[in-house]
Design a protein around this nucleic acid. Structure first.
Length: 481
RNA sequence: CGGGGCGUAGCGCAGCCCGGUAGCGCGCCUGCUUUGGGAGCAGGAGGUCCCCGGUUCGAAUCCGGGCGCCCCGACCA
């Protein structure tokens, strides 16, 4: 950190700011193992709220949770050619157990397609067994070269959905449905706007037919892939022999999907809303939505104030708010304000002798604004304010993204925008991997997605921004995490 | 794996060049006074100076060899 009090400002050094926020908000800590992290209670609480919201959405759309093993026989990974090529370099492999060399090395799952299809092959016989809609919450390990807390760690937590369907259309619809669910979650819960769309072949999941993704734009104008949803076609079904009898009596391979979102989302949350004072947690996901800070001088005041503060806490808790009373003695109120601001708590209620005498409370918003409100109105106002903050965060983030997006640029403008630290660039693309690669080499920008309809420009680009050939699709370019 | 930086108290650092009782700030503990935006005073606890070897009467400091971490790049959720 810059010093004992302040964080490194975003404008000075964004990535140091990011690490400072995590330390200040006590979200995570470095571990004794390189590339791994300890998720502290403050960070884990956010993850639990993310899990709860996503899990509910998955169940509402008919999915069931299950759990598959951490260890995967090495040979499983090898069965799908593209998949093994994609993941083999970054797997951790266990070669010994119980003091003996294993007959077959076990891979620590980097993702679970292979071991799950081995089960699907046993569970699916008939079209009546379909669709098979499974999700699991677990940890995975990918031996990354360079790691950053939450954004890329060797071990991370995530959910991976795996589904099998009777037809190609159903699998495609499932992949799109889950993409939509992620998007709704990110907007409604994280207050993080994302563009959705199709990945190009170079960014496609190893073993997928099509990969869709949600892409957010962080405050440093780098894109963050926040979730992916894959249509796997029959690739894994063929590799693991997952066949079913059709209603017509024939035999076919299932059509499958997989989709995932990870603790990386917490990194996205930090970089979407955080400011130079620390974390800004959207009310939907905040560990505490409201913190009450009592103020008193003498012992007589202390007991009176604390009694009122306790009552207030009970009332707010009874109304369903996540509320914390900071009754620690010996810390001045100001010190507590700074601490909870750093931790991103959306609302703070200050309560002291003057407020008690007047029958009021002081209500301070993490995103700015402080006012005195009637004590009786507390529960109502807290509810109203939390909703307003949630909306405001999304709106502010959306405006920032749009202010940092460029459409209809010439090649020179395209290059200049990216080199000037700009965000999303919408432009035509001829569809060739050559242009994509050249652009990456020269600008460090990659195609984040070929955006879905609603994100596309009103006038579709007619030519490739790089080579000038006819455009086959509008693409969004950006430098990315 | 390339480039850069750093390993000394929980955290941040000084000391190292020029060898001689291991220090500072924050934090922590105890007490008193404080408390409406980061409290003050007094007392106190806390260290294999990253590891191994060498030089020396004596090494945090000099020499050799390891290891680890962070940041920037190539790969990736």
């Amino acid at each position: 950190m810059a010093d004992d009090k302040g964080l490194t400002p975003r404008a000075e050094d964004f990535s140091t700011w990011y690490t400072d926020v995590i330390a200040r908000a006590e979200l995570a800590d470095y571990s004794p193992v390189r590339g791994c992290m300890v998720i502290r209670p403050g960070g884990y609480a956010i993850w639990e709220h993310m899990q709860a919201a996503l899990d509910r959405m998955f169940k509402e759309s008919g999915h069931q949770n299950a759990y598959f093993p951490l260890f995967i026989p090495q040979s499983f990974l090898a069965r799908e050619a593209e998949h093994v090529e994609g993941f083999a370099p970054e797997t951790a492999v266990v070669t010994q157990g119980g003091g003996k060399e294993l007959e077959e090395p076990l891979v620590v799952r980097p993702t679970s397609e292979t071991i799950i299809y081995a089960s699907f092959a046993k569970w699916i016989q008939s079209w009546r067994d379909l669709p098979m809609l499974i999700n699991q919450w677990c940890n995975v390990v990918r031996w990354e070269m360079r790691t950053r807390l939450f954004l890329r760690t060797t071990e991370f937590l995530w959910q991976e959905g795996h589904t099998a369907h009777a037809t190609a259309d159903e699998a495609e619809a499932e992949a799109l449905q889950m993409l939509k669910i992620y998007r709704v979650f990110m907007e409604d819960h994280m207050a993080m706007p994302v563009v959705t769309g199709l990945k190009t072949d170079s960014e496609r999941f190893a073993g997928a037919v099509r990969t869709y993704a949600c892409e957010g734009l962080m405050q440093d104008n780098k894109a963050l892939q926040a979730a992916t949803s894959h249509n796997l076609g029959q690739n894994f079904a063929r590799a693991f022999d997952v066949q079913f009898q059709t209603a017509e009596g024939g035999l076919d391979y299932v059509w499958s999907t997989s989709w995932g979102a990870s603790t990386r989302l917490i990194g996205g949350l930090i970089m979407t809303h955080g400011d130079d004072a620390g974390l800004v947690a959207p009310p939907q996901l905040a560990q505490y939505q409201v913190v009450i800070v009592p103020i008193y001088r003498k012992d007589e005041e202390r007991s009176v104030v604390l009694e009122v503060a306790h009552d207030l806490r009970e009332e707010l808790a009874a109304n369903g708010f996540r509320v914390h009373l900071d009754a620690r003695d010996g810390l001045k109120p100001g010190a507590k304000y700074y601490e909870w601001e750093g931790k991103g708590v959306p609302l703070r209620i200050e309560i002291g002798p003057r407020d008690i005498a007047a029958g009021t409370l002081m209500l301070a918003r993490r995103i700015g604004g402080k006012e005195s409100i009637p004590r009786d109105a507390a529960a109502d106002r807290v509810g109203v304010e939390l909703e307003a903050i949630q909306r405001s965060l999304l709106e502010t983030a959306r405006e920032r993204r749009e202010a940092n997006s460029l459409r209809g640029a010439t090649k020179d403008e395209f290059i200049g925008y990216l080199e000037g630290g700009g965000g999303f660039v919408y432009a035509g693309w001829c569809g060739s991997a050559e242009c994509e690669q050249t652009i990456k080499d020269q600008t460090k920008a990659t195609i984040r997605v070929l955006p879905d309809d609603e994100f596309r420009s009103d006038t579709p680009p007619s030519t490739c921004v790089w080579c000038g050939s006819p455009s086959t699709a509008e693409a969004i370019w950006a430098r990315a995490y």
